[in-house]
Design a binder for these strands. Sequence first.
DNA 1: CATAGCGCTTGGATCGATTCAAATTTTGCT
DNA 2: AGCAAAATTTGAATCGATCCAAGCGCTATG
Lengths: 353, 353
Amino acid sequence: MTRPVRLADVAREAGVSHGTASNVFSRPEIVRDEVRERVFAAASKLGYAGPDPKGRLLRAGKVNAIGVATAEPLSYFFDDPFARTVMSGISQECDATGAGISLVSAANKEQLAWNIQSALVDGFIVFCVEGGSRLVELTRERKLPFVTLDFAEHDDTVATIGVDDVAGAGMAARHLAELGHRRFAVLALPTIETGYGPTTLERAQNAIYSGTRDRIRGYFEVLATHGIDVKAVPIYETENDEASTRAGMEHLFASPEPPTAILAMSDRMAMAALDWLRERGIEVPGEVSVIGFDGVPESAVSTPPLTTIAQPIVEIGRRAVQTILGFDGTIRRETLDVELIVRGSTAPPPSGS
Amino acid sequence: MTRPVRLADVAREAGVSHGTASNVFSRPEIVRDEVRERVFAAASKLGYAGPDPKGRLLRAGKVNAIGVATAEPLSYFFDDPFARTVMSGISQECDATGAGISLVSAANKEQLAWNIQSALVDGFIVFCVEGGSRLVELTRERKLPFVTLDFAEHDDTVATIGVDDVAGAGMAARHLAELGHRRFAVLALPTIETGYGPTTLERAQNAIYSGTRDRIRGYFEVLATHGIDVKAVPIYETENDEASTRAGMEHLFASPEPPTAILAMSDRMAMAALDWLRERGIEVPGEVSVIGFDGVPESAVSTPPLTTIAQPIVEIGRRAVQTILGFDGTIRRETLDVELIVRGSTAPPPSGS
DNA sequence: CATAGCGCTTGGATCGATTCAAATTTTGCT
DNA sequence: AGCAAAATTTGAATCGATCCAAGCGCTATG
């Protein structure tokens, strides 16, 4: 491979200064036609690829791209329905402003640090699904504007966009309780770094992820006001994927008194639960009701369509980009409203129970 | 906003040369402990954010990120099932090698040019869905390694990874013909830049997108060998989205002799067709058979599950990354195999017809 | 003919780091 | 202590562009 052609080479070939050569490419209107032609001719003779963005970048300072970071593998952005929908909102806003998107992630921790440190971006949007605070620290060190999504640790030095998880979970529980359900079960998001299985209310209340904690709190506060024996409600902690959710359903329905109402902390779990129930021939919503959380697009077309607590997911993505691009030095914590969307997966419990 | 701290500031503060300061961050093991501590102390005193990747980049030359370009809006990567699945493969490979991903796109043409020209990447993967060749030209000018996906124009100067569209479409047509169908209709991918509606075989054969042309060819060659009157087979050109596909179904089924077999050029269209048929109460596969193309994950869980021609989509993504990262100067055109996956959306036609 | 004004071109400074050959300090050994 | 070898540190060069104050040539004006 031969050494690539630089602007200086073109300038020399055309017999002009590098300043003029630069102008030919970046502000063609200020150079004389004849000179411009000569420079273009030299450029194409030498096979010049155009001003190298690497050089331009250093001078310009702005990358014109925003980074989206997560501690999950990169494919998370394309596989997870929630992430995908947020990304869709981020994309819309980036398209509108002409900014690019850089996806940043890493399989292992050292990689993560390096990737965050060397990402060429003007700011970060941080997905706080797992390993949240480590990622946040790393990002903070870059001293670039950044927003976290759903990072509700009450830390006023980090900007966050999220929803009121407590209220949303409360709406879910209230909906089912008012339908007459008395036997509940919770399919919970991760409470600790790894692993899944049945857990206790106390452990769930101390989950390291604030979203998990808040949703638990929302569910149980409302359940308690409806006179449900809160300590008897089984909680199964999953990894928010198909396999662990199925294991959870297996466990919950092995009980002598299986639940008639499932509170799932994500639509992904809720939809996996729906699949499991359908395979077992258990009627939804006839025998068991299921309510999700998130309001991902897929939830509208599941069978049956999922009743869920909808977040304004696309809007979250758009605002995140706006926050980065219009960063003015102030840290804001935005909380958006959620909405109960009643579809076909919830109904009163079977009369016998 | 104050001027950011540079490595040189830290070096001065710590009383060392900038060469040493640089070593402290990039090769800490070669500087004496005492000096290293002093530099770190100076850095944290000044609030240094660590070596700026912009500066490092210029010296190092490699960005360690690969660009994925399309002429569609950025949200295409997250909304379209095929794109999403390719991205998933790309992600896996990038995760494995530690490379980042930059998404490049543009709403309008000038933006596109600028975005391609200024993308900070080591190579490009080009999605050739629309506006293919313009995008390819722009990318070629960067003189970086690049691979196109499904860009079958027979141009040996561009590397491509794709499938044998003719053979795949042929398999689809053969499957339905052997099931006994005689009344076919085609839901086609775009043949021209914009717009949708009924079209003719001749126009479709001259589609500007090679994928469209090849699939048409595959369908009709096989149909002809089964004695079908090829000129009577209606073709409806869509924009590969829900709305235009529905319009297409509306049109095709308004005919006095509606088709019993739908050849859809993408799973996305096939699934939209399935929805449309279900809403009309038309039985699939009892009254009408539908076959897709692509084999996106969603096709396995539609109702009914979709019979389709599966491409190795994830593999395509992985290979694309490997091609860029391991670029050795040779241009390769890889053609991967497709496979007929028979699921629940195809069956013999109703006996009466 | 001198001078002002305009338009284009020039070349040095700069962006923020890394690299490497040469200079300097330390260490090890007698 | 003396000296060679090893370990560190230095500082200039480089990566590839853009910016801008100064300079130059040309035309229009008095």
